[in-house]
Amino acid sequence: MVAPRSVAPALELVAVSFAYGRVPVLREVSLSVAEGEFLAVVGGNGSGKTTLMKLSLSLLRPTAGHVRLFGSDLDGFRRWDKVGYVPQRAVTAPTLPVSVDEVVTSGLAARARLFNRRRCEEAERIEHVVELLGLVGHRRSRMAELSGGQQQRALIARALVTAPRLLIMDEPTAGVDADARGVLRGSLEHLVSVEGMAVVYVSHDPEGFAGLAHRVVEIEGGRAHAGDRSAARGPAGADAR
């Protein structure tokens, strides 16, 4: 069942500009993503798409313009449990052994209780995302023992344990084999079409989101414009939901 949508977009960028020192990276970028919508953001290396993602997550502050999450300016936004973030897999290459279960439950750290005791609904949510992403048999495995695709799915599961309404993913299929991409696509399809989640998929590779994205935005020269329509499936609501 699709969750009821809030009126405000899940993510909204209004005339956002950003510069590293005097080097402009993004210029007056505006876009929005509603719940139940899959937005792909594409661009080459150095185009500014990762900067755009970091601005959306409040990891960077815009030099001009506004970023809003669920209708709130970032300064006043407190409901980070509504936002899930999936980094590139290489970011979390662990030095120490860490199990899939530990990676997934670390997504709940902000509201963890003493001795990491879990509330009933949290335990159920963990079970749900682990099953959704096909990790049931790997919960006790070391992350380092898993394939690239399995590791990526564990990171997505971590982002999903808070039951977010917006999922922002950075190059989620980088270094992932074809089989794992298939599982990933199935999971994303479910999250958008069944759970009504907003997904922002940042990638240089259209193959990962072809047929999934409702809209494609290309970042080029620091500006955003509509991307290749052949990679998109059309507006949200036009598909079977």
């Binding site: 990891l59 407190r78 936002v83 662990p94 997504g107 902000a110 963890a112 971590r158 982002a159």
Partner: peptide, 21 residues
């Protein structure tokens, strides 16, 4: 003991921990 879950999240990925609140 008190901060353990948060410290693990921080150690694994500081940015993801920050986004998680």
């Amino acid at each position: 003991v008190v901060l353990y879950p948060k410290l693990v999240a921080l150690a694994l990925d500081e940015q993801a921990a920050r986004v998680a609140g």
